[in-house]
Computed example of a mutant assay.
Amino acid sequence: MKKLKITLLMLLTSLLAAAQNPAIYTEKSGSGEVIFFLPGFTTPGSVWNESIDNLEGDFTSIKVSYAGFNGLPAIEMPWYPTIKKELLDYIRKEKIRKFSIVGHSMGGMLAMELATEVPEMVSKVILVDALPCMRALMMPGVPASAIQYESPYNKQMLQQNDSAIAATALMMSQNMTLNSEKVPLLTKWSIEADRNTFVYGYTDLLKVDLRPALSKFKAETLILGATFPDKELVMKNYETQFENLKQKSIVLAPESKHFIMFDQPEWFYKQLNAFLLK
């Protein structure tokens, strides 16, 4: 009985600690118009370092990192809704009245969330290989209600040993960039991610469907997509998913996978600056 009490106390302490951890971490640099740089899943805010270094004009850049990744303490589930809430809380706390957003992948989903929840505050949005509903592409016809934390797939993922995790992370990284020099870094970020955050956080993302809310957008939006695996198919997917977003431009990066800023950096910086400065 004593051992059971100690175990329960340790579990409660762990849960309380997770509840108190921040969901987002921010790093601010520069001065001028505010731009939020939101990374993708498992990716720290530092993924934007080169992009920020290549900005033209005067901007206050705010890089965001997420709990559970890159050595940052994990939080309780649900993960993604808590990230979104703390982003909105941060904007209000810092009294930021107007801002633009650059979001990659999951960061693009968060950018869409902000642009629909506080549309009057968002000036411009740049979505980098991001979709409003991943589930529609990956699991066609599956409703959000069918996506649960407790599933055979999630259980299997949580039980993987270190070598299996490393192999999966390497395969995923190779599928996300053509830049072989960046593969070890992407692999490292995936391997070092908190396991529960990796599994259950991704489950959160599969539930999200922002397509109906896109009609609330007021911000001018640039959508940058990767041409891999097929340019025509990719463009069709973007046009279908963003049908409700009226004020948009869709531009596909040549010879690029998911991490466009790694595969076509100079092209990416050019698109970024041209859109932000016009």
Rank of each mutant, 00 (worst) to 15 (best):
M157C: 14
P254S: 01
H258F: 08
S163K: 10
G141W: 04
L55R: 05
Y149L: 00
S163P: 10
L222N: 06
L87S: 12
W48I: 04
L205I: 04
N70L: 03
K278N: 02
Y66W: 08
M139G: 05
C133F: 05
A111L: 07
G201M: 11
P81H: 06
K246T: 04
E76K: 11
L11N: 08
W189V: 09
L72H: 12
I75N: 11
R97G: 14
S51H: 03
P212R: 07
K93M: 13
M261V: 06
T82I: 07
S46M: 06
Y238W: 07
I91H: 05
A136K: 04
A136W: 09
T43N: 15
T203L: 11
E117Q: 07
K270W: 12
E220K: 05
V234T: 12
A130H: 03
V234D: 10
A167L: 11
R135S: 03
A164W: 03
K218S: 13
K218I: 08
D58C: 06
N49Q: 15
T26R: 04
L245C: 08
L158C: 12
L206F: 08
A19N: 13
T168G: 08
R92C: 09
D53S: 03
P152Q: 06
A144Q: 03
I126P: 00
W48D: 00
G30E: 01
T60R: 00
S163E: 13
L277C: 06
M121R: 15
I250F: 12
A136T: 15
K278V: 01
G40K: 01
P119K: 03
T116S: 03
Y66V: 00
L131T: 12
L205W: 00
L137M: 12
S61Y: 14
I83F: 11
I165W: 09
I96T: 12
R92P: 09
Y269P: 07
K2T: 14
A164E: 12
E56V: 11
K248L: 01
A67H: 06
A166C: 04
I101V: 09
V183I: 14
I24Y: 12
K2Q: 13
M157A: 10
D263L: 09
L178V: 11
F268N: 03
V118D: 00
T187E: 15
K216H: 13
Q148H: 15
N196T: 10
P22Q: 07
P143Y: 15
N21Q: 14
E94S: 04
S145P: 05
K236Y: 05
T26V: 01
L224M: 09
S46P: 12
L245M: 08
L170Q: 10
W48G: 03
E33N: 09
A146Y: 13
L222C: 14
W189T: 02
P184I: 07
R97P: 10
K93R: 15
F69W: 02
P152N: 01
S180L: 15
L186I: 02
G40S: 07
W79T: 13
W267V: 01
T60C: 01
Q159D: 13
